[in-house]
Amino acid sequence: MNRLTTLEKEIINKLQKDFPLSKEPFKEIAEELNIHEDECLNIIASMKARGIIRRIGGVFDSKKMGYYSTLCACTVPESDIEKTAALINAQEGVTHNYLRDHSYNLWFTLTAPSFEKATEILEKLQNDTGTIIVSMPATEVYKIKVTFEMGKQDGI
């Protein structure tokens, strides 16, 4: 199990919430935490290697970027799951794909440059996989949260 030190949690919180928009962002974080930049970079590298941090980068708003996205689901016979999942994964714009415990057992998200393009992709996927795909686009967004504050009890 990955147990995070207090310093690691502090770094995670800084990296998630107040990543400095500057030429030397890691130096700024290090200074705020009273450590050397090298140490800060090493700790981050270690958390990446341990798989705690997936990546450091930008999280984009696909809608504001001019894209259309939707949550899709389909019912796939157990014997076809792996093959169908692979076909769906191979499609550009599919970002998440999960097997779930519901009669709709395969759930994936699709982001495409337009509604028309998304419809075209889903029709093609239906043909390729031989399944009926249900599209459930969001009509209201109440929350999209991408950060988790690390408290004392977190980071087991």
């Binding site: 990955n2 995070l4 995670i12 990296l15 998630q16 919430k17 107040d18 990543f19 928009l21 341990r50 798989g51 705690i52 941090i53 997936r54 990546r55 450091i56 980068g57 930008g58 999280v59 984009f60 708003d61 504001k64 970027m65 999209i144 991408v146 950060t147 988790f148 690390m150 977190d154 980071g155 087991i156």
Partner: peptide, 16 residues
């Protein structure tokens, strides 16, 4: 608003 956030993206399961 094109970029919602800049920084670390965690693997929730590994973060506890």
């Amino acid at each position: 608003g094109l970029i919602k956030r800049l920084g670390a993206v965690l693997r929730h399961q590994k973060a506890g």
